[in-house]
């Protein structure tokens, strides 16, 4: 099963919509609550990343038999140095974004910690694609 959500850059009030929808679906499927929590945390962080850094993006959730795959595609500035972006505490978020309580530099590392598979590709000036997989068991 496939679920798709559109995300607009800068729209913080909508950040969290996709993760709460996906949560609802996983709950109905009877997935272990601990796994659901990991999915929600990872997806929420990834959603916020699009809102905080990109212009727009599309989130696609694939519900497979063994786990959930989340693909987050955004159009945005891209990440010039992914290794640096993966360092805990490193952030390029604007002052405004930080003032709203986001952009502490924990997003990507946190997503990776919660995922069973984590893959990120980015092209500067074009956008970023994040591909994560979390197993149900």
């Amino acid at each position: 099963m496939e679920l798709e959500y559109k995300v607009e850059g800068g729209d913080f009030t909508q950040a969290g919509y996709a993760s709460s929808q996906v949560k609802k679906v996983l709950k109905q499927l009877g997935i272990n609550p601990i796994v659901i929590k990991r999915v929600v945390v990872a997806l929420y962080e990834a959603e916020v990343n699009i809102v905080a850094h990109a212009y727009r993006g599309v989130i696609t959730a694939f519900l497979n038999e063994d786990g959930i795959r989340l693909v987050l595609d955004d159009e945005g500035p891209g990440i010039p140095d992914i290794d640096q972006a993966m360092v805990k505490g490193y952030s390029t978020a604007s002052k405004e974004v930080r003032e709203m309580g986001f952009g502490a530099g924990m997003g990507l590392p946190n997503i990776k910690d919660n995922a069973d598979e984590f893959d990120i590709v980015s092209e500067v000036g074009k956008g970023t694609r994040l591909n994560i997989f979390i197993k149900y068991i």
Binding site: M1, V25, K27, Q28, L29, G30, P33, L63, N64, E65, Y136
Partner: peptide
């Protein structure tokens, strides 16, 4: 203890199929 009802049953493959049908 949780008493969660498995709306679509405990077989995940069938549950996903049912959920897709519902959608």
């Amino acid at each position: 203890q949780p008493r969660a009802f498995m709306k679509y049953g405990s077989d995940i493959k069938i549950a996903i199929k049912k959920m897709e049908d519902v959608r």
